[in-house]
Design a protein around this nucleic acid. Structure first.
Lengths: 225, 225
DNA sequence: AAGTTATTCAATTATTCATTTGAATGTTCC
DNA sequence: GGAACATTCAAATGAATAATTGAATAACTT
């Protein structure tokens, strides 16, 4: 990265910025970062979640670490990776923004697969916080248990999407339900809302997902089910 | 980019995001974008400013265009490139932020070459706007004439850095001077401030540069010297 | 100390990328 | 129409990157 000492300071900086961008320039690494946005993770877990081999995940993670995007912590035989910084999420968010605005293909996918927009309008973070205080809403976290354990919205009930059908009895049909999952492009909460509505529940999505909730400084509870 | 139709929507999106990031992952392209942040430019001008051959600049520009980061407009024999969107600047800014926070090499360069921090504290945009209204300050644009012509702070005097020494007489020694140039890592204004101070002027830098001023919604004047 | 497990390293192969060169478009000007 | 110019294209080169494999570390367990 910093081989040439004979370049101007500006060129040095641009080379470093480029190195960061280049590191973000791979779908697998973005997936790893999305996972890490939920919380700390071991290499094996990450490999599992992203469908990569352990060796391959390890390589990509090291790439991310060299670029300063993630950090590690050893605990026994495990090495836990985490995002280096909240600003990493900001970069991802701005890239999304550029893509949604300027890449037709992205706009198309987002429109067709995600926001069946007019239909499933999302609840804003502020609105959810207000209604949590009032107690006028039930919050449903449809992510896997372990992600829930790493942090969730206070008072949220954790029912992973695949278990939802079987556990409908735990939900109060009288109260409106707000479902959330991993982030803006996580389909879990969309599917949860669709499933709940089919069963006659009043349900909506939270805008984005837990990492964005956390990043916005909203309250988080850490710990078991 | 969009070859596989057999992937999930999320994977499609991540692949598109990665394509954008990868496009940003080259120092030359970042330099081109920095130039474009000043305003529209022809290929030859861009090649000139960045020290690239025309063919090479053209290739990189097309790469940027394919990624949706820049747009073009033909005018006679010239093809003018411009940023596709203001959000492109946001991505660059967040990458800078991550780099300054998490890459030691960047922090080092920024500290040593740029903010001789405590010494040359920058004027905020808001403060400059206020003082412009009051008329309690002289604004100095030290970029080349053509960049000045593409847009500048109202009332700014344009003296490119290399002409500064010769044109000191145009400046009022009684009034404080605020100098600016292309952006956070443009050295021109640092050097201008240093030069002015050496001559006994009271001078400070504007934070960042013109593109950021513009992006913040501050007033801009377009047109000749 | 030997075995187990999590992660990384090193070496290999296939692929993609950056740059240069010279030719090809498309536009203006005469 | 033909010369002059700005830009792009196509092909070729060398360099960098991604994924796989099997071996090497490093920590825990017994």
């Amino acid at each position: 990265m910093t081989k040439m000492s004979s370049q101007s300071p500006k060129q040095t900086l641009f080379a470093e910025f480029a190195a960061i961008a280049k590191t973000l320039g791979h779908a697998h690494r973005l997936e790893l970062l999305e996972q890490l946005a939920q919380g700390e993770r071991s290499v094996e877990t990450l490999a599992d979640r992203t469908g990569l081999t352990v060796a391959n995940a390890s390589q990509h993670l090291q790439h991310l670490r060299r670029a300063g995007l993630v950090a590690t912590r050893r605990e026994g035989k495990f090495i836990h990776y985490r995002l280096a910084d909240e600003t990493v999420l900001d970069v991802l968010a701005t890239i999304r923004q550029v893509a949604e605005r300027n890449v037709a293909a992205v706009d198309r996918v987002v429109r067709s697969y995600f926001h069946a927009r007019d239909d499933l309008e999302a609840v804003s973070r502020k609105e959810l916080r207000r209604r949590l205080r009032e107690g006028s809403v039930a919050v449903l976290d449809v992510r896997p248990e372990d992600e829930f354990a790493l942090g969730h919205v206070p008072g949220a009930l954790n029912i992973p999407l695949r278990a939802l059908e079987a556990r409908l009895a735990q939900l109060d049909p009288a109260q409106e339900i707000v479902a959330y999952c991993r982030g803006p492009y996580c389909v879990l909460s969309y599917e949860a809302v669709a499933a709940l509505r089919a069963k006659g529940f009043k349900a909506r999505r939270l805008e984005d997902g837990l990492p964005e909730w956390r990043a916005a400084g909203m309250p988080i509870v850490v710990g078991g089910a």
